[in-house]
């Protein structure tokens, strides 16, 4: 299908991923043809609201989808290997070792009956073939790396003895055990308090710099990604709406949805007192998605053509492109018109 923008140094490259669920005789098209890439050593943020397909997209890449889901793709390449040509055994070995994933809820992701040490050592023994003693040493080192104080003592403790932030650190440690090339973090701080969130985000950033791995950060919160990500991909209704560098997305967004999203939160510069501009209506159903642009129903610039078919990408720079029939300039012009009439 379409070409992704840049081809060099890509750790992950996916073209036209389509994921559908079959439930109760109905089909849910959760991801409807998304192409994206991750460069090695970068942090890519995938931003979207609930139901935008951001988690499903990443789980499709990881192969973590349930049996009733069907994943199709034109291309799926990870570190130079064609994942579409691999057999399940090869895939299983690669996932978990070379790509790892951490989840939103650190409360339920750990087995309450097992110590933290056995969680970590199991990974090390299985994926890196270590013996017990070596695994124990490595587990201490990894816990140290993620900033858990007195790791030797903590190894023998159970998940309930850890706070939420500490559990998320343990999960990050588990993911790091195999020194993955790619870490996918699915809303890693949503369940945490703001001061703890800041600690975890700092940790992810410094780990990325230390190890040189790539990170995909899935989130609904634009504030979280502003200080962390190099690039941002914005999703809506199962489609990629816009991608660009963090600077491009925040300071010259092209897609009406990206713009609306930025206007819907209080602006930190002005003290945040001006009236918010909500996006009217709600996200479309993915059981029977609209044939045109999924955002058309809520978009103040939408015209007849928007509802007919999904528009093509417009490319703005080597890194930025947006899925809208109007260019950024046309939208600026229209915005001026809307304001002078209103």
């Amino acid at each position: 299908m379409e070409e992704t923008l840049k081809k060099k140094d890509k750790i992950l490259s996916a073209a036209d991923i389509r994921t559908t669920f079959h439930t109760h005789g109905r089909t849910v098209q959760a991801v409807r043809g998304v192409s994206l890439y991750v460069e090695s050593g970068e942090i890519l943020a995938v931003v979207g609201e609930s139901g935008s397909g951001k988690s499903v997209l990443m789980k499709s890449v990881m192969g973590l989808m349930p049996d009733n889901a069907e994943v199709k793709a034109d291309e799926l390449t990870f570190a130079g290997q064609d994942m579409l040509a691999m057999d399940p055994e090869q895939l299983r070995k690669m996932r978990g070792k070379e790509m790892a994933m951490i989840f939103q809820d650190p409360m339920t992701a750990l087995n309450p009956l097992k110590t933290i040490g056995s969680h970590l050592m199991e990974v090390l023994k299985r994926h890196r073939g270590m013996d017990k003693e070596a695994a124990r040493k490595e587990a201490v080192a990894v816990l140290n790396q993620v900033g858990i104080p007195s790791p030797e003592k903590r190894l023998g403790q159970y998940p309930h003895e850890f706070s939420g932030g500490m559990r998320q650190r343990v999960l990050i440690a588990m993911a790091l055990c195999c020194r993955p090339k790619l870490l996918i973090a699915d809303e890693p701080t949503t369940a945490l308090d703001v001061t703890i969130q800041a600690q975890i985000l700092d940790l992810l950033k410094s780990l990325q710099e230390e190890t040189g791995m790539s990170i995909i950060l899935i989130t609904h919160d634009l504030g979280v990604v502003a200080s962390l990500s190099h690039r941002i991909a914005v999703m809506y209704g199962g489609l990629l709406m816009e991608e660009g560098t963090t600077e491009e997305i925040f300071y010259s967004p092209k897609h009406p949805y990206t713009r609306a999203l930025l206007h819907a939160v209080p602006k930190p510069r002005s003290g945040g007192k001006e009236r918010l501009e909500p996006i009217p209506g709600m996200a479309p159903s993915l059981i029977n998605p609209p044939s045109g642009c999924p955002f058309a129903e809520r978009c103040k610039f939408a015209c007849e053509d928007c509802r007919k078919e999904i528009p093509q990408f417009r490319t703005y720079s080597e890194t930025q492109r947006a899925l809208c029939i109007y260019s950024g300039e046309e939208l600026d012009h229209k915005e001026g018109e809307v304001e002078s009439h209103g």
């Binding site: 706070s163 703001v194 800041a198 504030g223 502003a226 963090t246 925040f250 300071y251």
Partner: peptide, 25 residues
């Protein structure tokens, strides 16, 4: 607490200094 707020503005976020809290609640 206030310095931990994630700012939806990358340039502003890069300038802001964070007061990190040590230890747990």
């Amino acid at each position: 607490l206030l310095s931990a707020i994630p700012l939806a503005d990358p340039r502003l976020a890069a300038q802001s200094k964070r007061v990190m809290l040590s230890g747990e609640l």
